[in-house]
Amino acid sequence: MILTEQSPTLTNPLQSIKPDLRVGFVLMNQFTLVPVAGLVDSLRFAADKSFRSEQIHCQWDWMTCDDQQVSASCGMVIYPTKPLNLWAQYDYIVIAGGLLGETRNPPNWLLEALREIHIARVPIIALCSGSFVLGKAGLLNGHRCAVHFTIRDEFCTLFPEATVIMDKSYVDDNGIITCPGGTAIDLASNLIRKHCGALRARKGLEYLLVQDKDKDTERAESSQDTFYEHARVQRAIVFMRANIDQALPMKAVAKAVGTNPRQLHREFVANTQDTPANYWRKLRLDHAKRLLINTSQNVTTIALSSGFSDASHFIVWFKKEYGETPVSYRKRRREVQMLSNEVSQGAFTDDPDL
């Protein structure tokens, strides 16, 4: 068909699809290219049905501090795709650092903005020397963070209240995620698994020629689960995860860790900025969301296996947390999958599952 001036404008129906994962990259000048490339290429493989690099399931934007081009430490020039806006409903904000000359003294307005989005519970990822930016913002005080061995001494001197980890590919401590460098593919894989499902995470690993680790081993090695310095809070979280399918009262959690509900409430709020009841509910909802993505179980079965007393209770809380019912969430994902299939029909037919 030949379009004329009178022809209606054709739009891509995929453009209206809500992505499962949105990431905003803030590229500091002289950033290290490899971890950024590993993270975004993993998102790219997980983003669509085939291999056209369409941003369907995952979306990402390139931003800089002054909305101007920046250079990677290898000399590659990158132009921003969007004006800087840390509040654009991103699931993660990535601070991509590199040469220390650019990250030792970040602008004060950026530090203040990072504090604000952390208070708003938007997870922040620091790649390479991006940890210096978070340290300057005071966001690493009392937190565990993964730091590259070449900058460890200076980092420890500047930020003595942070707990430096040297043997992890990344550390997630209460929404502050630090990755010392490398490819960042394991970090990306776990983000994709959490938001888009295991199949999409495996797709990226396969086509980047990276071996998929056992899920439990991967969690242990990469510190995916949030860690809190308060031993009792950490033990309570372990108990919650181990009993995710049990509708136990909070009294049982407190008893399991050797305290009473009131004291556990105080310790949770002080360490997680959340009550133990809300924290456990969010763990349950996240578990249920994974079951909706990766299984064909009905809503009632998922509700009960996630520790909710019944389906109605589960539906109310799911909608409150995610803005839609479990049925509409699952239906939307299936419609996305079907629409993506239609758009890519005839291409890459040798890969029907991805």
Rank of each mutant, 00 (worst) to 15 (best):
N298Y: 13
D61Q: 00
R333E: 12
L100Y: 04
N174D: 15
P19C: 01
L209I: 06
D286I: 10
P276N: 06
L27D: 12
D67R: 00
G323S: 07
N190T: 09
A198Q: 14
C156V: 03
Q6Y: 11
F25P: 04
K168L: 00
F159H: 00
V94C: 02
H195W: 07
T300K: 09
N260L: 06
A46D: 10
E116H: 11
A113Y: 01
E54S: 11
A252H: 04
L100K: 08
I302L: 11
L248Y: 12
F227S: 08
C65F: 00
A236H: 03
Q69P: 11
C58G: 01
S71G: 04
Y228M: 00
K136T: 00
P8L: 08
Y92E: 10
A120L: 12
G142L: 06
P13N: 02
I176H: 03
G197C: 04
E102F: 15
I93G: 03
Q337C: 08
P123Q: 09
T183C: 04
S340T: 07
V26S: 07
L100V: 06
T325M: 01
C196A: 05
I93H: 05
A347D: 11
T11F: 06
V336T: 15
S340Y: 00
V269G: 01
A311E: 15
R266S: 13
A184T: 09
H313R: 14
L99A: 13
